[in-house]
């Protein structure tokens, strides 16, 4: 009997274990190996920290690195600020059909690929785009205006892309808050602000943190949106990795960058959990 259960256990675990080993662990170990070597002669490599030293001595690299981190944190914060009222409205103010309808509205943009969605923004923002033309037509500007290829355009694209991944955990966690508890807060003399701060947000904390983790990781690792909306000046760290691997065939430096990006995202998520006094398990359940 004991033997049977353990066989079934391993059979059930096998797909997951294979996925983890083949697609996550082996590539990363290999990447670490590539990152820690240096080409000394054709087809000859030696162990070296050269790639990591290069990252820290070349300002462009680590400035891009920090800029990506700061912009991602900002994008996460903005997404949270916009998604929270939306989620609160969906979870607590609406009932029945209008609730599912609004939730569906949040979902609909995700029926098309990220590429199409981003091109949608380009149609709106470019020099000959909808907004530029509308402003000229209204007489507010004299010539065409370029709204693409700046940080604000990147931010808009990133927040838009991330919305759903913040709204879903927030709606779930807010729905689990009894209306009674909100009413009790008012009944005991609380106003809207104190109820939000002392009752709703503490209750929603696991959802807020898990939404933030997902959005932050997606933003940090995003390539398409910063590249298309930010253009050549977007300076997103994933573009540096792409350049090293594809343009310069410098797999060693590219791997080092990959490892550093992994360390950075882990560090920031860990810090976020510490600051919000949450644990990874409490936010994922």
């Amino acid at each position: 009997m004991k033997q049977h259960t353990s066989i079934f256990f391993w059979l059930l675990l096998a797909p997951f274990a294979l996925w983890l080993i083949l697609l996550v662990i082996i590539p990363h170990i290999d990447m670490l190996g590539i990152a820690l070597r240096e080409q000394t002669a054709p087809r000859e490599y030696a162990f070296s920290f050269k790639n990591f030293i290069e990252f820290f001595t070349e300002p462009l690299y680590w400035r891009t690195f920090m800029r990506t981190a700061v912009m991602s944190i900002l994008a996460t914060a903005l997404t949270l600020l916009i998604a929270f009222p939306v989620s609160y409205y969906i979870a607590k103010m609406l009932r029945g059909r209008s609730k599912s309808f609004l939730f569906l509205l949040c979902l609909i943009p995700f029926w098309v690929s990220e590429l199409v969605r981003t091109y949608g923004w380009m149609i709106l923002l470019r020099e000959t785009g909808v907004i530029s033309n509308a402003l000229q037509w209204a007489g507010l500007v004299s010539g065409p205006v370029e709204l693409l290829y700046n940080d604000a355009a990147i931010m808009v694209g990133l927040v838009y892309t991330s919305m759903l991944f913040m709204v879903v955990p927030l709606v779930t966690v807010l729905e689990s808050l009894d209306d009674d508890i909100i009413e009790a807060s008012y009944d005991l003399g609380g106003n809207m602000w104190t109820t939000m701060r002392q009752i709703v947000i503490p209750h929603a904390m696991p959802g807020i943190v898990s939404g933030c983790i997902i959005v932050f990781m997606m933003t940090l690792g995003n390539y398409l949106t910063p590249n298309l909306l930010g253009g050549k000046d977007s300076l997103w760290f994933t573009e540096q990795i792409y350049t090293q691997f594809i343009t310069r065939f410098n797999w060693e430096l590219g791997s080092a960058f990959g490892i550093l990006l992994l360390l950075l995202s882990s560090l920031i998520v860990w810090l976020g959990l510490k600051l919000s006094r949450q644990t990874l398990t409490s936010t994922m359940t």
Binding site: D178, D180, A184, Y186, D187, G189, G190, I199
Partner: peptide
């Protein structure tokens, strides 16, 4: 007069104690 300004307090059916406190 809103609920938070009335001199009446309520014990809810499911008590509605604040679990986060």
């Amino acid at each position: 007069v809103p609920a938070n300004k009335r001199p009446a307090n309520m014990v809810f059916q499911h008590l509605a104690l604040f679990p986060m406190m």
